[in-house]
Design a protein around this nucleic acid. Structure first.
Length: 282
DNA sequence: CTTACGGCCTGTACGC
DNA sequence: TGCGTACAGGCCGTAA
C-alpha cells in the first residue's frame, strides 16, 4: 500500500496504541514475511516498552526500552489495524500475520496478503545505522529538500527523472504515485535526463514534491485497492490524482487539450500529460 | 561505479 | 462460469 503519506498516516494511527506502551503479548503466526522474522522475535519484544515511535521514509521505527529497535515495513500490501481497549477483537482474517497486545489494552493486527512487508529488530536504538535505513536519502518533508539540494542530487545523472525520484538512496519515501503527481505539477517530462534540470526547474520540483506529500497526508493518504487507515477508514487523496491511473483522461489543467498518457519506465507505469510536461524544454 | 531486470507473493480485473 | 493473462503502492540481488 504504502508510500510516504500512507506510512505517515499509519504511524499516526498506531501511535496511541504503541508509543509509550509495553508489549504484553506478541503472536507471530508464520515464520517469515518477505524475510524470516529475526531470532527470538517475541522474546525481544514482550516486556519491553516503546520509548520512541517514528517514521523514516516508508519504514516505521519503534525504539525499545531494551535499546533495540523494531523496524516495520509494509511492502505493497501490508496493513495495520488497531483494536481499542474494550473493543471486540475481530475474527482472525486470512493473512493476519502478527498480533501485538499492548499493556494499555490496545491491540494491533498486521495483515499482508503479498508478504512483501517485513519486521526486523535491530540493535541500534533509533535505527538510523541499521542496514535498512543507513543507505536512505533525504526525507522529502524535512528541511534538507530544497531546490539547490535536489539539483545537487540529480546533477550529472543520466537516469530518467522518474527513476531518480524513485531511487530511495536520493530521496526516501516517494513511490510510483507521488512521483507521477509531483512531475505533473512541476511540468516536467518523466523521461528527462535528471542532470538536465535547470535550477528553476529543480526549485519547482522540490516545491511540488513537498506540496503533494503534505496534501496527501492531510487527506489520510490514498486508497487504491487495499489501503486503509488503522481505524479502517479510507484515505481519500486518490480523488486528487491528476495523472496517476488516469490513462486517456483529458488533462485536468484548465485550457489544456492534452490527454493523460501511460508509458512504462523500468517496468513500472508512468502517467503524464504530454502537453503540460513537454519533452523538449527551453 | 551505474542502470535494468527478474523475482518475491497474492488478489483482482479483464478478455475470451 | 471458468480460465488465462496482465498488472498492482516496494525492494533486493544479480547481471550487464
Amino acid at each position: 500500500m504504502p508510500e510516504l503519506p500512507e506510512v505517515e498516516t499509519v504511524r499516526r494511527g498506531l501511535a496511541p496504541a504503541m508509543d509509550g506502551a509495553r508489549f504484553a503479548a506478541v503472536e507471530q503466526r508464520r515464520p517469515d514475511l518477505r524475510f524470516p522474522f529475526p531470532a527470538r522475535f517475541r522474546e525481544r519484544l514482550v516486556g519491553h516498552t516503546i520509548t520512541s515511535f517514528h517514521r523514516r521514509a516508508k519504514y516505521l521505527v519503534a525504539g525499545l526500552s531494551s535499546g533495540e529497535a523494531l523496524i516495520m515495513h509494509l511492502g505493497m500490501s501490508g496493513r495495520f489495524s488497531v483494536v481499542r481497549p474494550g473493543e471486540e477483537p475481530p475474527e482472525r482474517q486470512a493473512h493476519d500475520h502478527v498480533i501485538f497486545t499492548m499493556s494499555n489494552d490496545f491491540s494491533v493486527i498486521y495483515n499482508d496478503p503479498r508478504r512483501f512487508g517485513f519486521m526486523d529488530i535491530v540493535d541500534d536504538g533509533n535505527g538510523d545505522i541499521c542496514r535498512h535505513l543507513s543507505g536512505l536519502g533525504i526525507e522529502p518533508l524535512g528541511n534538507q529538500l530544497s531546490g539547490p539540494e535536489l539539483a545537487r542530487l540529480l546533477a550529472e545523472k543520466k537516469t530518467p527523472l522518474k527513476s531518480a525520484l524513485l531511487d530511495q538512496r536520493l530521496i526516501a519515501g516517494l513511490g510510483n504515485i507521488y512521483v507521477c503527481e509531483a512531475l505533473f505539477r512541476a511540468g516536467l517530462h518523466p523521461t528527462r535526463q535528471s542532470g538536465s534540470l535547470r535550477s528553476d526547474e529543480a526549485d519547482r520540483l522540490a516545491t511540488c514534491i513537498r506540496d503533494v506529500l503534505t496534501e496527501a497526508i492531510e487527506s489520510g493518504g490514498s486508497t487504491l485497492k487495499d489501503y486503509a487507515r488503522t481505524d479502517g477508514t479510507l484515505g481519500y487523496f486518490q480523488h486528487a490524482f491528476r495523472v496517476y491511473d488516469r490513462e486517456g483522461a483529458k488533462c485536468s489543467t484548465s485550457g489544456c487539450q492534452g490527454h493523460v498518457t501511460r508509458i512504462v519506465q523500468a517496468g513500472r507505469s508512468t502517467f503524464f500529460c504530454p502537453q503540460c510536461q513537454p519533452e523538449n524544454h527551453r
